[in-house]
Structures are given as structure tokens and as C-alpha cells.
């Protein structure tokens, strides 16, 4: 028996909007730790890892570890039927081939339940070790989204370079080139407006902008984004989900032939 009650139901709606274009089908894993997911895109170049910790739910009952295969487009269709202020409860019985999403309006005057068919998904689970990164950049998530969108109108790939001068995003295409440099800036009114660069050594890596733009669909989940880079590892683009966990995107770099 599984019953997870999330008072801030809009979080789950935002999570689905952030991942449904990257991944079609995924297994949601439920354990005592929380509600999690790890899934790759169809070309096995990008990966999303989601964790919503059990403590972040108002009520969290998960009698045994359960993996529920869901079509994310269908799940998104159902969650779009929840109001932004609604409380969302996810329910499933052991051995059932369906999951139920229950939506309660804040004043309890409307209660809806949507039952969705589960599916069997053979998913490959990658072991992602903890790593020391050569550079970690924290910046406003809206700024990162703006840069990715702007550069993708010029070129297909972005070179992200971190030096002691700052973090540089560069692209080139048929019409020309573009460079955006963000310097460390901690003299801001609000902490989430800061750009903070922790660099062990300079690093420069090339990535497909199409995926970067897909990751920025998580922008509504967090005011800041953390980008971790090492020359021999996929980039990690992390959006913290307040009080609950995170959504992390991994993208393999492009390497010169």
C-alpha cells in the first residue's frame, strides 16, 4: 500500500513539466527514503534524477519498495487537471496495475480522483558515483535559461568555460558567434540573485544546446541552478526543490573527433 500526500501539489505538476519532454516513460521508485526517479532520454545522452524526500510529504506511507512505470505524457495530462493550490495524493495498492492521483482543493470543497494505468518498463539504471568537480557555478535559474535560449538561436552547441574571470557560455553558427560571460557577483539584494563560482581548476566543455534548453524547463522549481563541471564527466545541472529534494540533469559532453 502506497499513500503519499503532498500539500504543495504544484511541485509535482512542475516536476512533470520539467521532465516530460526529455523522457517518455519512466519508473517512479518509492521507498522509505522518498519518491524518486532515474531515467535517460531515448538516445542515452541525458539523464534525469529526481528525489522528493519522504519528510517533505505531509503523509508518507510506503509499506514496501515499489516501482511504478508511468508514461510521463499521460501523467502530465492527469496532473494538469489539478489546480495549482490543490493537495495531491498519490495512491497505489500492492500488485495493482494502476495508480490514483487524488486532488483536493485547499478548502476541501472539491475532491477529484484520476486513475492511471501503469506500464512495465525495462529501464537501465546507471550508477552515478559522488564526484569532486573542477568547477561549480551557482547562478539565478532564470539567467541560465535566458542564456541557453539566446545562444540556441545562434548555434547548436555551447562551450561552457570556467576560469578565474568567470563562467563563459559560447556558441557559433552560420550567422556568427556569441559569448556570454557571467562574473562572480555576491553583492546582491537576495541570495538567489548571486552568481557564485567555486573553481578548483579551469575547465571547458561542449554540450548540445537542445538538451540544455530542455533542462531549463525545471526553472519554475527553483530560483537558482547549480552547474557542476569536470573535464572527464557529464555536466550536472541541478535544481533544488525547496524542503524536498532535487531534480538533477546529467548530460554527456561532446568530444572533438
Amino acid at each position: 500500500m502506497l499513500e503519499l500526500r503532498l500539500v504543495q501539489g504544484s511541485l509535482l505538476k512542475k516536476v512533470l513539466e520539467a521532465i516530460k519532454d526529455l523522457v517518455n516513460d519512466a519508473n517512479f521508485d518509492c521507498s522509505a527514503t522518498g519518491f524518486s526517479l532515474q531515467a535517460m532520454d531515448s538516445s542515452h545522452v541525458a539523464l534525469v534524477a529526481l528525489l522528493l524526500r519522504s519528510e517533505g510529504f505531509e503523509h508518507y506511507r510506503c509499506d514496501r519498495n515499489l516501482s511504478m512505470g508511468m508514461n510521463l505524457n499521460n501523467m502530465s495530462k492527469m496532473l494538469k487537471c489539478a489546480g495549482n493550490d490543490d493537495i495531491i495524493t498519490i495512491k497505489a495498492d500492492d500488485g495493482s496495475d494502476t495508480v490514483t492521483f487524488m486532488f483536493e482543493s485547499p478548502n476541501q470543497d472539491k475532491i477529484a480522483d484520476f486513475e492511471m494505468k501503469l506500464m512495465d518498463i525495462d529501464s537501465e539504471h546507471l550508477g552515478i558515483p559522488e564526484a569532486e568537480y573542477q568547477a561549480i557555478v551557482r547562478m539565478p535559474s532564470s539567467e541560465f535559461a535566458r542564456i541557453c535560449k539566446d545562444l540556441s538561436s545562434i548555434g547548436d552547441t555551447v562551450v561552457i568555460s570556467v576560469t578565474k574571470e568567470g563562467v563563459k557560455f559560447s556558441t557559433r553558427g552560420d550567422i556568427g558567434t556569441a559569448n556570454v560571460v557571467c562574473r562572480q557577483n555576491t553583492t546582491v539584494d537576495k541570495p538567489e540573485e548571486a552568481t557564485v563560482i567555486e573553481m578548483q581548476e579551469p575547465v571547458s566543455l561542449t554540450f548540445a544546446l537542445r538538451y540544455m534548453n530542455s533542462f531549463t524547463k525545471a526553472t519554475p522549481l527553483s530560483g537558482t541552478v547549480t552547474i557542476s563541471l569536470s573535464s572527464d564527466l557529464p555536466i550536472v545541472v541541478e535544481y533544488k526543490i525547496a524542503e524536498m529534494g532535487y531534480i538533477r540533469f546529467y548530460l554527456a559532453p561532446k568530444i572533438e573527433d
Binding site: M40, S43, H44, V45, A46, L47, E124, H125, L126, G127, I128, P129, T157, T206, A208, D232, L233, P234, Y250, A252, P253, K254, I255, E256, D257
Partner: peptide
């Protein structure tokens, strides 16, 4: 030209 690596080049399958 750049060659797009796959994640399995960096992470092992569990």
C-alpha cells in the same frame, strides 16, 4: 566536428 558521447561511457550500469 564533435562526437556526442553517451552516458554509458562515463557511468556503469547498475
Amino acid at each position: 566536428t564533435c562526437n556526442q558521447k553517451k552516458l554509458s561511457a562515463f557511468f556503469s550500469l547498475n
